[in-house]
Amino acid sequence: MTVDLFAAAAPLEPAEPAQPDGTQPDDAAPVVELRAVTRRFPGPPVVEALRAVDLRVERGDYLSIVGPSGSGKSTLLNVLGLLDRPTSGEYLLDGRVAGTASEGERARLRAQRIGFVFQSFHLLPQRTVLDNVVLATMYGGVPRARRRARALAALERVGLSHRVGFWPTTLSGGERQRVAVARALVTEPHLLLADEPTGNLDTASSAQVMALFDELHADGVTLAVITHDLAVSARAARRVRIEDGHLEEIA
């Protein structure tokens, strides 16, 4: 993670030039700030997946998002992950306007600041475990010479050093999901988004992955986990519920 020393020393001075809308990018800013974000899918019938959602995720937060199917969980994750644009409202990622940024800028932000973990792992079956992790560094702009070392370090962090040359198809579900976590971590993202990370896993594998998330949280990684598994959401320090597009904190 990059640390801006000047921002820390002189918080009143913007670290980078002010953006057109007057917001000031600042590393002291929350990782995620949603202001009245609405996502409406044109119908018929018109579906309001998110209705004026406000959300702040501070650095180091471990947030779980729960809610029944069709409540807007995935839409929220897609908006947070810059895979989808809000219909209205503002999304600031690390204090930068991300919701209305250009397509190229959003791709760059995804590559450098966001890590994804999917329910169905999304590992390329014809590439080795190491190659799958290296793939993320390629789009993240990591210099070629450092990619392999970074990927090996990420795999070691998730405890899969002994599976480096394996094909994903030969791994267990829990191992596959840990490869996916390593891939998400390798670019040192500011925000790790997980969409039902234990949805395809048995209890033992789920426990492994959740333990890994706890470790990452302890290391200061900002986590947002979508789940409808209450046991999973109970591990998070902060929980929010989404229902019919409305977001509310769970005490």
Binding site: R108, R110, L124, Y139
Partner: peptide, 16 residues
Amino acid sequence: VGEIGLRRALGASRRA
């Protein structure tokens, strides 16, 4: 399609 989606999520631009 899945691979394309993954690559986009990992930060690949349309051009890439």
